Every structure is written in structure tokens, then in C-alpha cells.
Amino acid sequence: MGARSYSFPILLISLLFVTISLSTLNTQVPLWLVHNQFPVWQIGLVGSSYFVGNLIGTIIANWIIGKFNAKKTYSYVCILFALATLGLSLSMDVYSWSFWRLIIGIACAVTWVIVESCILVTGTVRTRGKMLAVYMTTYYLGTVFGQALLRYFPIDVLYFGLVISTLMALAILFIALTHYKLPKKKKSSFNLMPMLVHKQARLGLMGCVIAGMIIGSFYSLLPAYYAHLGYDDSQVANWMIILITSGVIAQIPVGWIADRYGKQKLLIIEMIIATLACMMLIAGVFDVIATILLGATIYTVYPISMAWACETVKKQDIVTMNQTMLLVNTLGSLVAPALIALAMDKLGNDYLFVSIVLISIYFVWLLSRSLIKNRWSRHAGSF
């Protein structure tokens, strides 16, 4: 237990370097493409390619971990991340950039499976929720730091890649100091169907899909949205900082509220608030307040949904459920940016927020219908 307690903060420090790297790339890549006159649909394609990589990485993560062990796998994918970032400097076209972003997506997904699995396996029923809250807070802090540091990064793609490579080297150094070992499965087959059809986890998994759709769209398209409004790179980074910082601050209090008052009710309220915030942004009123509300809601949907789904399975199935949640989250992140980018190209930039409103309303309908159905069943059962 001593090794575990000391390994956890070191694991988070390593994750911090990976997240800072990813955060800077998520904003800088769309801006590079905008500055080079790429249309919105191609920017969406490059963004979706990253999430295709997430999907592939999620599927192959267990096989790679079983072959090389957790720490070696983590180190290898950090090296892959660095090489792919350097690869962006080789040419400026949509197909090569889509390929390199796909490779980065694979590396990130494997990293998340390792980190989240280490937390879920070593945590207990009492500590797992707190550890996940600290993990998500660290992840979003890294995202904020990445946005804040972006103005100090070199604009040149090659030198940018060299900075990312240095951060990846630091991530490898810290992961080497941990003592995590993940249990090996007897079967190496990728069988998530029992988790996907697990009725009690259905809405939790749907929450992971919704979170992926919204956050994936914002990461892929929001920098381009602000750039088309005429904001410079520094202003774009500032708006992203406001959005993500709100999510960081909300993590722990929202987690406490979810545990105390119920995850399903809280998700309904969050989606309603997100809808109102998007309407404010479409109308152009109280933009800062709307961005804060949006960040505080959308960035807490995934951890709440993840905890909700994990509550419905046995401990030996938690890692598989974690992999399933990453898979469906990635599917949401993969589909939404490409479709919403097409809508923005044809109908206007505001359709980024119109799309988020439609997604949120649909999730509110699903959650409310289930809540009413459960209450009616309990009421009928009392007679």
C-alpha cells in the first residue's frame, strides 16, 4: 500500500506532462489549419482522425499491456506521441495530418486505459471516487496549463514537436518511478458486449457517449470557431482556458453533489444548464458567464457517467467497463466533430452550439424518461 500511495501522485505528474502536450496540440492544430486556409470540413476531418485513433487505441490497449506490461506500454506510446508530433512538420496536407493525428489518438487512448485502470484496480469502494475526482482534476489542470503555456510554445511545427518530445521524455521518466502492475486476463479477446448490453449501466454509458460528442466537438472545432470570429491565437487560448478552468473547478463539488443527491438528477440539471449556456452564446449575451457555465457542466458529465456505470458491475469487471466507457466516449468524439463541421460549413459557425443544444436536449429526454419510469415502477410496486 505504501508503494501505491507514493505511485499515485507520481502517476498523476506523468499524466500532467502528457495532458499539457495534448492540450497544446488540440488547440494549435486547428489554428495551423485555419492559418493555411483549410476549409472547416477538412479541419473536422483531421479532428475526427484523432478520435479514430482513440478508438483503435482503446481496442488494442489490453493486448499491448498484456504483451509489454503497463509501464513499458506507457513509455512506448509516449515515444509514439512524440514521433507523430514531429511527423506533422513533414508536410502540410489534410491526409498526412489526419494520419499523424490518428497515431497521436492511439497513443493517448492507451495512456488513459493504463492510468484509469491503475486507479480503478488499486482503489477501494471508498477511495475510488475520490481518486477519480483527483485524476480528472489533474487531467483538466494539465489541459488548462497547456492552453496557458501555448503562447510560449514556438509557432514553427518542427520546433513545437521538439518541445512536445521533451515533455514526453519527462512523462516516461516519472512513470518509470511508479510500482503499478495490472492483472493479466486469461482471455486476450476483445469482448465488451456484456458491458454494452448491461442494462443497469446503459444510461451511464450513454453519458460517456454524450460527453465524447460535446467535448470532442469543442476540442476539434471551437478554436476554429473563434479564429473565424477574428480572434488571434492568444485570445483563442484565453477562451479555451476559461472553458476548461470552469470544468476543473467544478470537478470535486459536482462529484460531491452527485454522490449526495443522485447522479441521474444531476446530469439532467447539467444538460439543461449547458443548453441555456449554448443559447446565450448563440445570442451573443453574457459570453463569459455562458462559457463558465458550459465548462462547469460538460466537463463533469464523463466522470459522473463513469462512476455511475462502474457502480453497476463487479470489481473484476471494472477494467473491462472502463475500456467500454472509453470506447463509447471515443465513438461519440469520432462521429460528432465530422458531422458538426459539415453543418458549420453549410449553415454557419453558430451551428456548433445549435448541435450541442440538440444533443443535450436528447440526453435530458432519455434521463427524464428513465427517472419517471423508475418512480412509476416503485409507486406501482407499493400497492
Results as ranks from 00 to 15, higher is better:
residue 282 I to E: 00
residue 306 M to Y: 12
residue 245 T to R: 09
residue 275 T to C: 06
residue 299 Y to N: 05
residue 281 L to S: 01
residue 313 V to G: 03
residue 234 S to A: 15
residue 292 I to C: 07
residue 279 M to N: 01
residue 283 A to C: 03
residue 276 L to I: 11
residue 253 P to A: 03
residue 278 C to A: 09
residue 271 M to W: 13
residue 279 M to F: 12
residue 282 I to Y: 10
residue 293 L to C: 15
residue 287 D to Q: 12
residue 241 I to R: 11
residue 203 L to D: 00
residue 285 V to T: 12
residue 279 M to D: 06
residue 324 T to V: 03
residue 287 D to R: 10
residue 262 G to E: 00
residue 307 A to L: 13
residue 201 A to S: 15
residue 260 R to H: 10
residue 217 S to D: 03
residue 247 G to N: 11
residue 257 I to V: 09
residue 313 V to F: 07
residue 269 I to D: 01
residue 318 I to V: 13
residue 324 T to Y: 02
residue 227 A to H: 00
residue 304 I to A: 05
residue 281 L to Q: 14
residue 294 L to M: 11
residue 214 I to A: 00
residue 313 V to E: 09
residue 203 L to A: 00
residue 202 R to D: 00
residue 301 V to A: 13
residue 284 G to V: 11
residue 281 L to W: 01
residue 212 G to Q: 14
residue 268 I to T: 06
residue 259 D to I: 11
residue 240 M to G: 06
residue 322 N to F: 07
residue 225 Y to M: 02
residue 252 I to P: 00
residue 326 L to V: 04
residue 258 A to N: 04
residue 287 D to M: 13
residue 203 L to Q: 08
residue 249 I to F: 15
residue 315 K to Q: 12
residue 309 A to K: 07
residue 238 N to Q: 13
residue 249 I to G: 00
residue 211 A to D: 07
residue 224 A to W: 05
residue 327 L to I: 05
residue 203 L to W: 07
residue 247 G to R: 09
residue 232 D to P: 05
residue 255 G to E: 06
residue 274 A to T: 13
residue 292 I to K: 10
residue 252 I to A: 08
residue 307 A to D: 01
residue 308 W to V: 00
residue 248 V to E: 10
residue 318 I to K: 09
residue 297 T to R: 12
residue 224 A to M: 06
residue 223 P to S: 11
residue 315 K to D: 14
residue 324 T to M: 06
residue 327 L to H: 03
residue 250 A to P: 08
residue 285 V to I: 14
residue 318 I to F: 04
residue 317 D to E: 15
residue 261 Y to E: 02
residue 285 V to E: 08
residue 236 V to G: 09
residue 236 V to H: 07
residue 233 D to N: 15
residue 251 Q to T: 07
residue 250 A to M: 02
residue 270 E to A: 09
residue 282 I to K: 01
residue 287 D to G: 03
residue 207 G to V: 06
residue 281 L to P: 01
residue 204 G to N: 12
residue 229 L to F: 05
residue 211 A to P: 07
residue 321 M to S: 03
residue 236 V to T: 12
residue 209 V to Q: 07
residue 242 I to T: 15
residue 239 W to I: 04
residue 329 N to I: 08
residue 239 W to H: 10
residue 246 S to W: 10
residue 217 S to A: 13
residue 233 D to W: 11
residue 199 K to E: 08
residue 224 A to S: 15
residue 260 R to F: 02
residue 222 L to H: 13
residue 272 I to S: 09
residue 299 Y to L: 13
residue 272 I to D: 00
residue 311 E to V: 05
